[in-house]
Design a protein around this nucleic acid. Structure first.
Lengths: 147, 147
DNA sequence: TCCAATCAGTTAGGATGCTAACTATATGTC
DNA sequence: GACATATAGTTAGCATCCTAACTGATTGGA
């Protein structure tokens, strides 16, 4: 995460630019602004989700299982590819979701190593309950009051 | 963090929009894009910094101590205010920076509770070494090859 | 057939983040 | 002066993330 509340002023960046060369002041400012805005928004989303017992990663796994209507189940490794999260994290997160009944193992495949998972009715209902406010927060952006 | 590699397509979001109401498809798409871009960029920055033995938080603490030329030292609580990180995290991160000699306690203040800290010569040199590439990565943005 | 290489998933160990509760110092009101 | 309250920082306990190394199943070439 990127937690710098007050970004360096233009003057400060110009100081660095003189010192280090190859520093585009405006571009740097806009990138830092994006990082801060995204961090704030992610924080808001995480707070909202954790208030309903889900981590961001748990939520996104449910989204992936839910949004793809063409398939009934996914492998952990496939989800890892879509999520850019390490395999061990996926392994433990899936264990948590199983324990809470939001996902379940699908009928075993021919491959003895694979353990395809699917979203449960409870999982789908949880998403249905969370998504309206999720979209609302997403549209509000980094600061709640700015319209 | 936000780790969704392939964002929902416009079609998917439109599906949610029909279902939930009050969903602005374009705005939602652009917010999701921002979150993904920022996540990727933060990942790149964290990887770069950790390759030099610093976490993002450690790096930002050094930046805060370094950039403010008007003051010789800061309190942990002041830094916490500028960083939007919890006090316990600051406490342990400062301990690590002290152990590694990048910061040091400044001369004690009149307030017996306060423990003002300052950046050391070694800390300043570390920043000087890291900042050029830091700005370079920042300007490259989320994907290394895109110009 | 046999054995090396690959692949799915887990375990181990460590770093970083959080909230809640704590210690110790400072402040302010009676 | 004495006690309630606030503030600076730490400790405790827990969740989440990482990399490296592991187990077990599958594949493919000699």
């Amino acid at each position: 995460m990127f937690f710098l509340k007050d970004l360096p002023t233009r003057d400060m960046i110009e100081g660095y630019a003189r010192q280090y060369d190859h520093v585009d002041v405006s571009l740097t400012q806009s990138r830092l602004g994006m990082l801060r805005d995204a961090s704030l928004l992610i924080r808001r989303i995480e707070k909202y989700l954790s208030g309903h017992g889900l981590s961001q990663t748990q939520f996104l796994i449910l989204i992936i299982l839910h949004r793809d209507k063409t398939r009934d189940s996914h492998l952990a490794s496939e989800i890892a590819g879509k999520l850019d999260v390490s395999k061990p994290v996926l392994s433990t997160t899936i264990k948590t979701l199983l324990r809470n009944g939001l996902i379940a193992y699908a009928t075993a495949s021919t491959d003895g190593r694979a353990k395809p998972i699917r979203i449960t009715e409870k999982g789908a209902q949880t998403l249905d309950r969370l998504l309206p406010d999720y979209f609302h927060i997403l549209q509000q952006g980094p600061s709640p009051d700015a319209q």
